[in-house]
C-alpha cells in the first residue's frame, strides 16, 4: 500500500468479513441442519453441527430418488458439457479459419440464439421434442440428415415422443446455445495468424492444425468453459422439469425442489432430510469449482476482451 490508511483497511476488512459470512453462511447452515435430528430442527435453526448426519443421509440414500438423480445429473452435465465444447469448437474453427461467403450469416444465426433463452420458448420447444416432429421427420429422412446423425451418435433419431424421459432429450436442447461458439471465436481471433500460415506452409491440413496446434493452445479457455458449462448444466431446472416425467429420470436439482413443493403442500417440513439431500447435490459442482477455480477467473478475463 502507498500510504498507511488503517481506518480504511479496517473498514475494508469488515466489508470482506460480511461478504464471506454472506457467502458461507448458507453452506454452514446446510451442514448443521443436515447433521441434526428432527427434534432439534423444529425448535430453531441449529447453529452447531449435530450427530445425526448418518441417519439423515441414510434416509436420503435409501428412501428417496436423490442418489439416482445425482447420477442422472452427472450424465446430463457430462453430455451437455462435452457436446457444447465439441460443437462450439468446430463451428468457431469454421468461422475463423475458413474463407466462406456466408459465414457472417452463420455466425449471426448462431449468435441470435442468445436472444431467446429456453425459459422463454419453453412451450414450443417442448412441442418440438414431443410430437410435432412428424412433418419434420420426413424432411430429415429425405435429405439424408438422419444418416449423418446416425453416423455421429450411433443411432437414428426417430423423432416421435421418444425424446421425453431420455438423457439425450434432456441434453440436446441445452447444447444448442451460442455462448461457447462466441467465446471460442474471440479466443481463436486473438491467436496470431502466423501460426496457421506456418502450418499451411508446412503442408498441414485444417484437421491437423486443429488437433495438433489449436487445441493444445486452447487449454485455458476450454477448461474455463468446461467449468461454467458443467455448473450451468447441473443447475438447469425448467427443461428437465418438463422433459422428465419419471422421478427416476429427473436430475438432482429437480428432485431437490420437490422437497420444497411437498412442504408447501402441507407435508411436515423435515428440513434435516432436505438439507442432507442438498449436501449431496452441492458436493459435485463444489468439487469442480474448487479444483478449477483459477481457470474460471483466467477464462473470464479472456472472455471479456
Amino acid at each position: 500500500m502507498i500510504e498507511t490508511t488503517r481506518s480504511i483497511d479496517r473498514a475494508a476488512t469488515i466489508v470482506l468479513a460480511i461478504g464471506i459470512l454472506f457467502a458461507l453462511g448458507p453452506f454452514y447452515l446446510v451442514v448443521t441442519t443436515a447433521t441434526s435430528t428432527f427434534a432439534t430442527v423444529v425448535q430453531g435453526m441449529p447453529l452447531r453441527p449435530g450427530t445425526a448426519l448418518f441417519a439423515n443421509l441414510h434416509h436420503v440414500l435409501f428412501q428417496t430418488d436423490i442418489p439416482q438423480q445425482v447420477i442422472n445429473s452427472m450424465i446430463i452435465a457430462v453430455l451437455v458439457t462435452s457436446g457444447k465444447a465439441i460443437v462450439s469448437v468446430l463451428s468457431a474453427f469454421a468461422i475463423v479459419y475458413f474463407d466462406l461467403k456466408g459465414k457472417t450469416v452463420i455466425f449471426g444465426m448462431i449468435l441470435a440464439t442468445m436472444m431467446m433463452p429456453i425459459e422463454v420458448r419453453i412451450v414450443s420447444t417442448y412441442a418440438v421434442a414431443s410430437n410435432v416432429f412428424t412433418p419434420f421427420q420426413d424432411l430429415i429422412d429425405i435429405t439424408g440428415v438422419n444418416d449423418l446423425i446416425e453416423m455421429l451418435t450411433g443411432m437414428r433419431l426417430s423423432l416421435e415422443v421418444n425424446l421425453l424421459n431420455t438423457y439425450v432429450g434432456m441434453a440436446l436442447p441445452l447444447i444448442a446455445t451460442a455462448t461457447g461458439t462466441f467465446l471460442f471465436r474471440q479466443f481463436f481471433q486473438s491467436i496470431p495468424r502466423e501460426l496457421s500460415q506456418a502450418a499451411r506452409m508446412d503442408g498441414a491440413g485444417p484437421v491437423r492444425f486443429l488437433i495438433d496446434i489449436l487445441l493444445p493452445l486452447s487449454k485455458a479457455p476450454l477448461g474455463a468453459l468446461t467449468v461454467i458449462m458443467f455448473e450451468s448444466a447441473w443447475n438447469q431446472l425448467i427443461w428437465p422439469l418438463m422433459i422428465a416425467t419419471d422421478p427416476r429420470m429427473e436430475p438432482a436439482v429437480v428432485g431437490l425442489t420437490e422437497f420444497q413443493t411437498a412442504f408447501n403442500s402441507g407435508q411436515s417440513p423435515e428440513y434435516q432430510y432436505m438439507m442432507a439431500a442438498a449436501l449431496l447435490v452441492i458436493i459435485p459442482p463444489l468439487i469442480v469449482i474448487a479444483l478449477l477455480q483459477r481457470l474460471i477467473v483466467r477464462g473470464l478475463v479472456i472472455g471479456e476482451k
Binding site: I86, V87, S88, L90, S91, F93, A94, I95, F98, L100, K103, I106, M109, I110, T113, M116, R121, S124, T125, A127, V128, A129, F136, V145, L148, I149, L152, L172, P173, I175, A176, A178, T181, P206
Partner: peptide, 21 residues
Amino acid sequence: WPILLSLPQLLLIFLFFYWPV
C-alpha cells in the same frame, strides 16, 4: 470443410431454437 464443421451446431439450433420459434 466449413459447412461440415458448423453443421452439428446449425442442426441443433435449427431443431431446438429456430423451429420452436
